[in-house]
Design a protein around this nucleic acid. Structure first.
Length: 669
DNA sequence: GCCAACGTTGGC
DNA sequence: GCCAACGTTGGC
């Protein structure tokens, strides 16, 4: 196991230089860090730009002609001037409140709302729970089962053995319920026997193992009924260590959450009595992270809510069928065609939430409400978007916000240097400008040419066959949608909380190692720097990650404080945990990040390109990153200076840029 | 992948 | 109903 994990670490690190960095705060943070600490002057060509092309902060700082390095430094100081927020057309204030109301600050959960589709409406009304392929949209009817965790449902972890934390008086670690709930410590003979009696258990092999080892009624006591109703409430007693399961269930690296090629050992086959999040019935969790019983798994393959963790979920991999089929992914997708569409692991909106909240949030997805651009009130009147506005005499064809008011973080125009952005006074889109190409976009229902030699006009006059058209369009559509996708990046910031949601959707993962989507499936990332008050006992400023499959307190879960007193580099830390192929395939990696350094105002747009530059060409010479990579690949317990931003980025990177195929490839190498 | 065009929606 | 601008479409 250790060797395997070490190998995984090396594989992770080797992929890092090739990553494509999404538009995100984490990226920028690192760049700033490097720029400041390493005193490496940013290679930025200073050029005079029109006002609306100048960096917005520069304008706010009144720094005409401010050099880029200075500019970055200033931004690092997080001195974004407060500007009176506009309450006009973009309903910032109200919607910001709306957005905040969707945040559960205690749990760091960010509520999201499904789209108003017929399917969703049906599901919300409870009229249909039939679809085994349905996107696991939160069902308000079932929300009581996933209501906020009561203190009783959070199992105080008292690890058996020599854990130092177990000796801390009153130490209580409130890990996400789905992690603690399946703690093997809750398994005792009675519980296991109860599990055998559970009607929800249908996994035969597991049951047989238990039956053979522990006969029902051996101890002559029936389990309490409450154990049936809520197994997680079963008190955990260290005295249970004397039972036959304690030894192998407590030791983390060997924790049997992984299986290889369907080979399940006796030890691995031991189930954990868990409570299904969907139906509430106890069931046998094959591994940590299994929150749904076998029955509900087909209908609700996604957990309903997630803690403010980073959740990398290997979608399209049947957690139950791994190893039992030659093509588990295909089989899974066939069984659950919509399974891979599960993207966001957001908090289940309670029934009180109305559509207005969702609409309000939806309207503000392009606004962080905090950046200078969002706080800007006036249109510049000079950019192309302003010029397009009717009030500026435009034709209102673009219908976009002023360039200067485009959110730095969430605008989809972020980072784009449209042709019309270079200089509004200059002719735009010089390249390949043809008069007949002037009309672009949606309304043009241009038909595809049958004959490539046909003229466009001729084709347009023809009445083509609809089926051919559809085929062609379908092909084109697939060609686009089948490819890689960008990170769908969302950024939410409050005065105290920062939420970064990144969704990666690649239906057709690339095989190349440099492919940032090498996980081969959709991934959902949600980062929150909200501190967990209940993760006391660990460094409040630390960066932690939890890996599913490790059932205990954060320290037992493999959470590693990455900053200050962090003995482990992030990449290595993750790789040293059982998150190899099996975990990424069968379960999901959960990373819990606590108070990760810089506020979002540090993030700059320019740093994205800089980051790419570093990643691609300077990694081998950069004093920070390359050494980390080389070290983390083979060694362990390297005491490194605290670099919060670096840790954060590396954590994301090393967690995301993994793929089992890459693992196999590099294993060969 | 980029982005022009515009349908559409929400606030007023 | 008007305005602002988000989200989608589809050509390139």
């Amino acid at each position: 196991m250790t060797d395997e994990l070490n190998r995984a670490s090396a594989e992770q690190e080797t992929m890092q230089p090739e990553e494509t960095v999404p538009v995100g705060a984490d990226v920028v943070t690192v760049i700033e860090y490097n720029a400041v600490e390493n005193s490496e002057p940013a290679k930025v060509t200073v050029e005079l730009l029109p006002e609306w092309l100048m960096p917005m902060e520069e304008e706010e700082y009144g720094g005409e002609g401010v050099k880029s390095s200075e500019w970055i430094t200033r931004k690092t100081n997080n001195n974004v001037p407060k500007v009176k927020r506009r309450r006009g057309r973009p309903p910032i204030a109200r919607n910001a409140r709306h957005g905040l109301t969707r945040l559960d600050f205690k749990k760091g959960l960010h509520a999201d709302r499904p789209k108003k589709t017929v399917r969703n409406l049906l599901e919300r009304t409870g009229s249909s729970l039939t679809s085994a392929t349905a996107i696991p949209i939160p069902d308000p009817i079932r929300t009581p089962e996933v209501s906020p965790q009561t203190p009783q449902s959070i199992i105080p972890i008292s690890p058996i053995g020599d854990s130092s934390l177990s000796k801390i008086p009153g130490a209580e670690f409130h890990s996400p319920s789905h992690l603690t709930r399946v703690s093997p410590l809750s398994i005792d003979k009675s519980a296991t026997r109860n599990f055998i009696h559970s009607p929800a258990v249908k996994v035969g092999n597991v049951t047989q193992q238990i039956v053979s080892s522990i006969g029902p009624g051996k101890d002559g006591t029936e389990p309490p009924l409450r154990l049936w109703l809520c197994p997680s409430l079963e008190p955990i007693s260290p005295t249970k260590s004397q039972d036959t399961f304690s030894e192998q269930t407590v030791r983390l690296p060997e924790f049997p959450e992984t299986r290889h090629n369907g080979t399940v050992t006796l030890k691995e086959s031991l189930p954990f009595l868990s409570k299904c999040e969907s139906c509430g019935s106890p069931f046998s969790a094959h591994k940590i992270g299994d929150t749904l019983c076998y029955r509900c798994y087909g209908t609700k393959p996604e957990k309903k809510h997630s803690p403010p963790n980073i959740v990398f979920r290997k979608v399209g991999q049947d957690q139950w069928e791994v190893g039992k089929t030659k093509h588990p992914r295909k089989q899974m997708l066939k069984q659950h065609p919509k399974f891979k569409k599960i993207v966001k692991t957001d908090f289940v909106p309670d029934g009180d939430e109305d559509e207005d909240d969702w609409a309000a949030k939806k309207r503000n997805r392009r606004m962080c409400q905090q950046c200078v651009a969002c706080l800007r009130e006036d249109d510049c009147g000079k950019c192309d978007f302003c010029m397009d506005k009717p009030k500026f005499g435009g034709s209102n064809t673009k219908r976009q916000k002023c360039r200067l008011r485009q959110c730095k973080f969430q605008s989809k125009l972020h980072g784009h240097r449209a042709n019309g952005m270079l200089n509004p006074s200059l002719p735009q889109r010089k390249k390949n400008v043809k008069p007949k190409l002037k009309r672009r976009g949606r309304p043009r229902k241009r038909k595809f040419k049958r004959d490539p030699w046909e003229d466009d006009d001729e084709v347009s006059d023809k009445d083509e066959d609809d089926e051919d058209d559809d085929d062609l369009r379908h092909y084109k559509m697939n060609g686009r949608k089948g490819g890689r996708r960008k990170w769908n990046y969302t950024f939410k910031e409050d005065e105290e909380d920062v939420f970064v949601e990144t969704v990666i959707d690649d239906e057709e993962p690339s095989i190349t190692e440099e492919d940032p989507d090498i996980l081969g499936s959709e991934r959902s990332v949600m980062v929150s720097n909200e501190m967990y008050s209940n993760t006391s006992g660990l460094s409040a400023q630390g960066l932690y990650y939890n890996v599913s499959g490790v059932p205990a307190a954060p320290h037992m879960l493999g959470s590693v404080p990455l900053c200050n007193n962090n003995p482990l580099p992030m990449g290595e830390g993750i790789s040293s945990l059982p998150m190899g192929d099996d975990v990424t395939q069968n379960g999901f990696l959960q990373i819990e990040m606590v108070r990760v350094g810089s506020p979002p105002s540090h993030y700059t747009e320019e740093a994205q390109s800089t980051e790419q530059h570093v990643s691609e060409s300077q990694l081998e010479s950069t004093p920070v990153m390359p050494s980390a990579q080389s070290e983390t690949s083979t060694t362990s317990n390297n005491a490194r200076p605290c670099k919060c931003h670096v840790c954060f980025r590396r954590s994301l990177r090393s967690s995301v840029w993994r793929d089992e195929r890459t693992t196999a490839t590099e294993t060969k190498a």
